[in-house]
Design a protein around this nucleic acid. Structure first.
Lengths: 254, 254
DNA sequence: GAGTGGTCTAGACCACGCT
DNA sequence: GCGTGGTCTAGACCACTCA
């Protein structure tokens, strides 16, 4: 007999002990919202009703609903109820997922594809060396990738990683993976946190693949990746064609 | 005897029943971090130690720490401890506070001032009417304000609000208040949620006060404000000189 | 007044990292 | 093994909204 015995049966899936209960409930409720089982604008079942349905405590239900509220999927009203956000359609990201580029493109209604454009060795500039806490001229792995929305290039993603971390031959690297997976698989480094800067930029040579017009303006997401020990692991420099893909999300106040 | 009896005495303040306990603990811990009582990179007291110190349950401490973690002030490591983020200095905002412009400017190390530039009536364009669910040509209150960082204009904030909501004479409006306060005080409307779009923009006539150079690029935050009933309340159109004020924040992964 | 979400407690056990 | 944070329970009372 496995540890994976069912706790509650449900139209779509079965709650088991294999993953945290809250995560499984999260998936079920998310599905119900996406499938419009709970229609946009509609009041959802109360916390206590849900805790009875899934056979879990109200606290567990609350942690799930809190996450969905942060993403903007639901709106909570004290003394009234929990409602499905009627404007889900206008949203393509949330505050914790701005850099999930593939997801951002998909939720904007396009088909995603990723094309590695370059995997090569470069020398660190002074500024890059400063940020990565290495020496100027030290070797970096330079990873350049293009994200497409329906065959149209929309995001240029550039990453720089100190070559000293690299644990496999460069040719083995699969450039279509996301950066977290790349750091883990080929560099054996776990990203603990990221700092992100948002700014605008003018299209120039390196971004000409993206911009149709000359002097077009792009959205720039400048990221720095750090380990658990606060060591710099990598730099990310990303350009979005915001005419096609504009990040849009929901914010609520307590 | 008041309801406000002290629960715990502390170097800086006293915990009482006047506000939620978690909010008060939040303020105390936030202060300790800012004052470097808990120094950057240092391990903080454990959850159980804090719950003993403040005489509250561990669950309460956890809700506080969760909020601080979302803002990037602390980093949590299972099996190890809770640490003050060593990179606080590089951060000037967090994911839930991107539109607190005054705070953004202050945390970037400048002195803030706000100057109302225009409070007038305009006619709704077709697009504005669509977003606000009114008729083209309907009257809107147009509010234009400039945010300064050390005497240097850095953010242009434009708001459009249907005049039909207005409950006081236009001249009474204090243009230096934040939009939530303005909506509440003069329009008797409570903002329940906001959708925010992030893009880049080229400086043009309306933004020439901001941009030093011609054709400079700016960061645009395009907002739509909604009531609890999902009715559109206002439009916000904001331009940041991201050469001077670049939003930078921390993101962690579960 | 009835029902909702918001706050809080005092336990329990688990997963993980360190040493 | 021990201490950390992560998950979860079964209660309680409060604040708020709506009929």
């Amino acid at each position: 007999m496995s540890d994976d015995y069912p706790l509650v049966k449900n139209k779509f899936m079965v709650i088991s002990r294999s993953k945290p209960i809250s995560e499984q409930v999260n998936i079920i409720l998310r599905d119900r919202i996406c499938d419009a089982d709970y229609a946009p604008g509609e009041r959802m079942p109360s916390e206590s009703a849900l805790s009875v349905e899934f056979g879990v405590s109200r606290a567990t239900i609350r942690t799930v609903l809190a996450k969905l509220a942060v993403e903007g999927l639901i709106l909570r009203k004290q003394g009234n109820g929990t409602f499905v956000n009627e404007r889900i359609e206008e949203i393509n990201t949330h505050l914790g997922g701005l850099w999930e580029f593939a997801q951002l493109i998909e939720r904007s209604g396009f088909e995603v594809s990723i094309e590695p454009r370059a995997i090569e060795i470069v020398s660190a500039t002074k500024e890059e060396a400063r940020v990565l806490a290495i020496n100027q001229g030290d070797e970096l792995l330079f990873l350049k990738r293009l994200f497409f929305a329906d065959e149209q290039p929309v995001i240029l993603a550039k990453n720089l990683i100190p070559i000293s971390f690299l644990e496999v031959p460069m040719k083995m690297i699969d450039g279509s993976l996301r950066i977290r997976e790349i750091m883990k698989r080929y560099f054996d480094q776990k990203i603990s946190f990221v700092t992100v800067g948002i700014s605008s930029a003018i299209a120039e040579n390196s971004t000409k693949k993206l911009a149709v017009e000359k002097n077009a303006h792009l959205l720039n997401l400048s990221m720095r990746f750090y380990s658990e020990k606060n060591e710099p692991l990598a730099i990310g420099d990303n350009y979005l064609n915001d005419k096609l893909i504009m990040p849009r999300f929901v914010q609520t106040w307590h």
